[in-house]
Each structure stands twice: as C-alpha cells, then as structure tokens.
C-alpha cells in the first residue's frame, strides 16, 4: 500500500536538522550524537563560569501556552549558558480563546527576529503547525499528549550516564501512559536505542495493545507493576493528574497508589542497581513515595540537571553550522 511504503532515506548523521518536533525522525546515530554533545555541555555547566559564547546573537523565544516551571527555566538556562538572547512569552489558554490566532502570534514573533522558538502547548501537533509558519527552528517543549522530545533525550542521557549503554536495558514506564507525552517520546527514543520497554498502567490509562504495537511493535503492556519490576533496570514513574480520577478513569487515588505507586516495598524487591526516574513534577504519595524519590536509587534530581545540558546540545545543533 502506498502509505505503508516508507521511503528509506534516514537523514545522514551530520545532516542539519531544522526542527525538533518529536524523536520519531531521529536515527539512533543522531540520538547518540546529541547525547555526546550533551556530555560536553555538562562539562561547561560544571565550570565556575557556566557560559560560552557559542550562540551569541541568536534569539531564543520560549513560547509557553501551558504552565511550566522546570522546562521553561531549563531552556532559559540552556540558552543563557550558550550566550543566546532569551525572551519568555507566556500565553494563557488557547490562542483561539484570546482572539488572536496562533499563526498570527507566530508571524509576529518571527517579525521580532526570533531564531529559535521553544514551544509548549496544550494541543497535540502544534509544533508541526508552527514550524510550517516559522522560518527559524522550532523545539517542542511538550504538546498535549503527543510528545516531549527534550524530556526523553534527557532521560536517555541520564540512563546512558548510569549504565554506559541503553541497549538491552529493561525499562518500565508506569503511570498515565495514555495521556503522557513523556511516555510517547521515550518510546521513540528507547526503542531506537534498542532498550526493552514495558508500559504499566490500569487499562483506563493504557488503551488496547494493538494501538501501541502499530507504532512500537516490541513494547510490552502490563497492568501488574510487581511483575514488571522483576528484572527492571530502570523504572520511570509518570505524574498522575488528579483530573483523571475526577474524569472517572480511576476509582480513587488511594487505590491507584496501592497498585501502581513506586513504594519502598516494591523497590526492595528490585535489584540494587535499578534506577528510579520521574519527569516531574511529582505527586508524592500518589505515584511515588517521598522515600523512594529521595532514595539512593533515585536519579530524579540528576534528570533535572541533565535537562539543561541536553537542551544546550539541541540549541547548539539547531543553531550551529
């Protein structure tokens, strides 16, 4: 069938990339290059003067239509560490509700001289729309339930730093998979790096297996966290939005925690090397207990630190020649 024939011309590793909408169009080689660059960037961040002049004269606009603290600050610090000019733009609600269309907003930002647009929006797919109307580069900082590629790259970077490889690691992602952009981008990244991925959630937060297998053929699905944790090298808990319970997808948060939270007891059953990750912000006591979040196995804080390095690597990749 014509729309099943995927032309096989993966971008060569050195090809200049214009946008980062998701990891679906990254090759393994490109991911490895980004992680290598992130390693150098991390070194810069450990210096006394955490700044290099690489992106002097480049304007980065953080366009956040949805609330975010850590991602926006992380991008801002990354851009500043590379000496770029950074402007934050916060829009509340949808552009349609404001009266100005998103496309008009983007054209305005372009006319103001932006080179790189870091975009967060509550609607899936917005980075593609924006990239169509913006002459510079777009980095997706999270769009609806679709993608959060910089989070996935920082997760990969963190795993790589701990294990020195990603291939063949058993990675469990537990939580609200169905509504998670973090899970989707991690699926692309982890499967490209040939990790074994298991998604764990109650069926109301997961959906049917064939729907996932169509895009990620080897992923495993489960609703039994204890089984999943057996042999896991990495376990990543996702934030559970309390609205899911209000929408009737869960009987109660208490019941969710009882069966799907990362607790000390569950962690005790894993091996000592199992990494605990969380993209934040955490609902402590819901999907993860405070003891687990601060346990020696937890790399949650390192994820945050690594996020700056990975975002520097991406900004450098998009702006550099």
């Amino acid at each position: 069938m014509p729309h099943q024939t995927h032309t096989s011309h993966p971008p060569s590793p050195t090809a200049r990339r214009r946008h980062v909408c998701d990891l679906d169009d990254f090759t393994r080689e490109e991911i490895e290059e980004v992680l290598e660059t992130a390693d150098s960037m991390k070194e810069i961040l450990s210096r006394e003067i955490k700044q290099v002049p690489t992106l002097r004269g480049t304007t980065v606009i953080n366009m956040f239509f949805e609330e975010s603290t850590r991602t926006r600050i992380s991008f801002e610090l990354a851009a500043r560490a590379l000496s770029a000019t950074v402007v934050n733009f916060t829009g509340r609600g949808s552009s349609v509700e404001k009266g100005e269309s998103l496309i008009d907003t983007v054209r305005t930002i372009q006319a103001l001289g932006a080179n790189i647009l870091v975009l967060r929006h509550s609607q899936a797919g917005v980075p593609y729309l924006v990239s169509h109307h913006f002459k510079g580069s777009v980095i997706n900082a999270g769009d609806g339930c679709h993608a959060h590629p910089t989070q996935a790259l920082l997760d990969l970077f963190t795993i790589q730093q701990k294990f020195d490889r990603i291939e063949r690691l058993n990675v469990v992602i537990v939580g609200d998979i169905l509504h998670s952009r973090v899970a989707r981008s991690n699926l692309w990244g982890l499967t490209k790096m040939e990790a074994n991925v298991t998604l764990c959630a109650p069926p109301t937060l997961l959906g049917p297996l064939p729907f996932w297998h169509a895009s990620w053929p080897n992923v495993r699905l489960s609703s039994n966290l204890d089984e999943c944790l057996d042999g896991a090298d990495v376990v990543m808990a996702l934030r559970l939005q309390k609205e899911r319970q209000q929408a009737g997808l869960l009987p109660s948060l208490r019941e969710y925690s009882r069966f799907f939270a990362l607790t000390s007891e569950r962690l005790a059953a894993t091996s000592a090397h199992t990494l605990v990750m969380h993209p934040g912000p955490m609902n402590e006591g819901v999907e993860i207990t405070p003891e687990v979040a601060t346990s020696p196995q937890s790399v949650i804080e390192e994820q945050v630190t690594n996020g700056v390095a990975v975002r520097m690597a991406l900004l450098y990749r998009l702006a550099g020649e």
């Binding site: 899936a124 797919g125 769009d143 609806g144 339930c145 679709h146 993608a147 169905l178 952009r181 989707r184 959906g207 064939p210 729907f211 996932w212 297998h213 169509a214 895009s215």
Partner: peptide, 15 residues
Amino acid sequence: WAMHEGAVSVRLGLP
C-alpha cells in the same frame, strides 16, 4: 475527541 480512536490517535496523542 479530535480523531478516530486507534493506532494513529495513540501515536499522535490526540483524544
């Protein structure tokens, strides 16, 4: 909803 529920909606993260 935004589109048909199936493999594509799951991939694209659309309701």
